[in-house]
Simulated scan of single mutants.
Amino acid sequence: MASTLPEPVARLVAAANSGDSQGFLDTFAPEGTVDDRGRVFSGREEIQEWSDAEFIGMHVTLDVTAEITTGEYTTFTATVGGEGFTGESHFSFTVEDDLVQQMTITA
């Protein structure tokens, strides 16, 4: 499937798939947030702590299987691999000024 993800989201997926923690963090706005099934992590320091424990640190891989973008909102479904949670998840993003403002993960 050819990706039409906005550049910041495409960079985030590429960074996750290559285990690039700094590249992953650099996709977020300084005040960005991650909402992982209701647990919210705000700012790059909290996002890094979460990622080190549950995302990049668990060698996550994201195989995007469906995507839609409307304005600054992007949603995709991905098959998640790695050493932590595996299976299908839904990811939603708000992008502004070429940076991810919010990433929300739901089952």
Rank of each mutant, 00 (worst) to 15 (best):
23 G>W: 08
103 M>Q: 14
30 P>Q: 09
75 T>S: 07
21 S>Q: 14
88 E>R: 11
14 A>G: 11
84 G>Y: 07
41 F>L: 08
12 L>Y: 11
44 R>N: 03
96 E>K: 12
24 F>N: 05
84 G>W: 14
67 E>S: 07
66 A>V: 01
75 T>D: 03
28 F>E: 04
107 A>H: 10
16 A>K: 00
83 E>D: 15
105 I>K: 01
33 T>L: 08
15 A>T: 02
92 S>R: 07
16 A>S: 11
45 E>M: 01
34 V>N: 09
65 T>N: 06
43 G>S: 03
73 Y>W: 11
31 E>A: 12
94 T>Q: 08
9 V>I: 09
69 T>V: 01
2 A>Y: 05
50 W>Y: 15
33 T>F: 00
10 A>P: 06
11 R>H: 13
88 E>W: 05
25 L>P: 06
50 W>R: 05
40 V>N: 04
49 E>A: 11
11 R>Y: 09
94 T>D: 07
79 T>S: 13
7 E>S: 11
92 S>T: 15
19 G>E: 00
3 S>E: 08
101 Q>R: 15
16 A>M: 03
70 T>W: 00
17 N>F: 00
47 I>W: 10
85 F>A: 00
43 G>A: 01
6 P>A: 14
59 H>K: 08
19 G>A: 01
64 V>D: 08
73 Y>V: 10
40 V>R: 13
101 Q>D: 13
26 D>T: 05
83 E>Q: 10
89 S>E: 11
76 F>D: 03
2 A>S: 13
79 T>R: 13
7 E>C: 04
25 L>T: 15
33 T>E: 14
97 D>M: 04
63 D>V: 15
83 E>M: 04
53 A>W: 00
70 T>S: 13
68 I>N: 04
106 T>I: 09
44 R>H: 09
41 F>V: 10
14 A>T: 12
106 T>M: 09
107 A>F: 11
66 A>G: 10
22 Q>L: 15
36 D>S: 14
23 G>L: 12
87 G>M: 02
82 G>N: 05
71 G>L: 03
62 L>Y: 14
76 F>N: 02
49 E>K: 13
8 P>T: 14
105 I>T: 11
24 F>W: 13
30 P>W: 10
91 F>G: 08
99 L>D: 10
56 I>N: 04
38 G>K: 03
44 R>V: 12
17 N>E: 00
50 W>L: 07
6 P>I: 05
73 Y>S: 07
36 D>M: 00
106 T>P: 01
36 D>C: 00
107 A>P: 04
71 G>E: 04
34 V>Q: 07
79 T>I: 15
58 M>D: 12
9 V>D: 08
66 A>T: 02
89 S>T: 10
51 S>C: 06
29 A>R: 04
17 N>G: 02
5 L>G: 04
66 A>Q: 12
103 M>R: 06
58 M>W: 04
46 E>V: 09
25 L>D: 09
30 P>V: 03
36 D>W: 12
62 L>S: 12
2 A>N: 13
87 G>D: 06
40 V>P: 02
